[in-house]
Design a protein around this nucleic acid. Structure first.
Length: 229
DNA sequence: CCGTGATCATCT
DNA sequence: AGATGATCACGG
């Protein structure tokens, strides 16, 4: 991705939100053109393209950093693909799961909590038949989990982490978790990573990541109607 | 190789 | 159709 005019990082939450709202109604093509970024024909070989584009447009940091996209503000950016009904088309990847040194991890200090405590959701029109350059950005939402939502996330997280700490990660499937899933996250099914249990014994396992179910992100996006931007 | 950005491809 | 398990590209 060639970037010629990368915006500076926003210094305040208001600045970020204003910039994000200014993108609403625009197409991916318009945004890409301003940044001199080429638009791919399809996303099959450019799966993270939209996320990188919006992150660049808003002045976020490098995607490779294992933390919030806007560290100063503690805000994570997530693009979310919508179908014609305005519902999420896919689950939302949150972060990789640490497979070692998981003993004693607490929810409040976990990587996933720190990623989810404040998220800027950028909806993107993602019907298959619409050319990528013509897809529109929807109205963004700056969200933090409600007490109820956080409780559900925490419970899911604790159940998953307990299995992992017991060395039973192989038993975890995407069927588990009310709103938070554990699914493979690797370049291929052949990749292996060391996973250690409470006794310090290690096993090689497929790397996993945390994902939010579409039903959960759908509920989150409804706040756009309760609290119109 | 690993974690970031996610969507794809297949099965039910 | 929707969900699950698998995969693609990139920078460090």
């Amino acid at each position: 991705m060639l970037i010629q005019e990368r915006p500076a990082p926003p210094s305040t939450k208001e600045e970020l939100l204003n910039h994000a709202r200014a993108l609403a109604g625009q197409t991916l093509g318009q945004i890409a053109n301003r940044l001199n970024i080429a638009v791919p024909e399809n996303l099959q070989h450019s799966k993270g393209w939209q996320g990188q584009l919006i992150e660049t447009a808003l002045g976020g940091i490098d995607a490779t950093f294992a933390g919030p996209d806007f560290p100063e503000l503690g805000i994570e950016l997530k693009t979310i693909p919508l179908d014609h009904r305005g519902l999420p088309k896919e689950s939302t990847y949150v972060c990789a799961i640490e497979l070692s040194e998981i003993h004693g991890q607490q929810w409040k200090t976990s990587l996933i909590y720190n990623k989810l405590k404040q998220v800027l959701w950028m909806p993107i029109e993602s019907e298959k038949h619409i050319p990528i350059s013509q897809r529109h950005i929807g109205m963004p939402l700056l969200w933090s989990p409600s007490k109820l939502q956080e409780g559900i996330l925490k419970t899911d997280w604790e159940e998953h982490m307990e299995k992992i700490s017991l060395g039973r990660i192989a038993e975890i499937t995407a069927h588990m978790g009310n709103v938070l899933q554990v699914r493979p996250k690797a370049a291929s099914g052949k990749i292996r990573r060391k996973s250690s249990n409470e006794q310090g014994e290690t096993k090689d396992t497929l790397p996993r990541g945390f994902y939010l179910r579409p039903a959960f992100t759908s509920e989150i996006l409804k706040q756009n109607f309760i609290n119109p931007a």
